[in-house]
Design a protein around this nucleic acid. Structure first.
Lengths: 132, 132
DNA sequence: TGCGTCTTCAACCTTTTGGTTGACTTGGTT
DNA sequence: AACCAAGTCAACCAAAAGGTTGAAGACGCA
């Protein structure tokens, strides 16, 4: 296995982004904003409207989402329309699916082993029963 | 749309668990432990070994993972084997896929609109070019 | 130019998080 | 009984997160 510094730094970078993405979506308000943005782009004020927090707080939330790569912001006069970037979701999905599948495979293997043991137990019991 | 208190509380409960799961996986050490547990169950000491933190810290991390429903712990003498629970991953996957798909559909629609506009532009340009 | 709107920046506060050390519980071992 | 090993609990600490208010920057419009 190659362990060059580039690879290491790349791994760490991925790790960091994964941390940022998960962390960004750990907040209900930010998840809600993502849901809103899936419908269409929106300005900061529009995004702030449903919540009982200040616009400044929403601006901070958007910065978190942007740093995670979940969202991008363009310029339209004094407006700053926010756009959802769907690609980053793949990063998470890949990570999740990987370990979910491993865990499930292991579960199935364990199931098979248990079934095997159970059938051996019955055989054993039968023999013992015949012996006594 | 039904807005009974049961439904609301259930929605909030789901929301909370989603927050806990995302939050739990936002930490690199905890993600690493999940990766380790996908291979097989492990004790607290085994899990702590690779990291330069105390066992107590790892114990706390495990509590976070457990509260998120990502992990369960049984008793074996003084050991406390940790087991990965794969089902919770579905909760995240569903959430992610939902909004990713919406965003991508929207992107495709936008693409179509832009293509339409582009072809109209070319037609326009051609007409202008012929006129000048 | 001056005004109003949209947005961000800066300073501050409180709560949460991730870590530490030290004491305690629990269950095997000798 | 004495001891050791695995984990957890409790108290504490520093840094980060999420929120607030107040000021400032950027742009359109009268």
């Amino acid at each position: 296995m190659v362990c060059s510094t580039e690879r290491l730094s790349k791994e760490m970078a991925v790790d960091d982004q994964l941390s940022r993405v998960f962390s960004a979506l750990a907040d209900p308000i930010r998840r809600d904003m993502v849901a809103r943005l899936a419908v269409g782009d929106a300005t900061v004020n529009e995004l702030a409207e449903p919540y009982s927090v200040t616009v400044q707080a929403v601006s901070k939330h958007l910065k978190v989402l942007e740093d995670a790569g979940l969202v991008s912001r363009s310029k339209q006069a004094q407006r700053r329309p926010v756009h959802l970037e769907a690609e980053v979701f793949d990063l998470m999905t890949k990570w999740i699916e990987r370990y979910r599948q491993e865990a499930e495979q292991r579960y199935r293997r364990l199931d098979a082993v248990l079934a095997e043991m159970a059938s051996e137990d019955t055989r054993q019991t039968r023999v013992e029963g015949e012996a006594s």
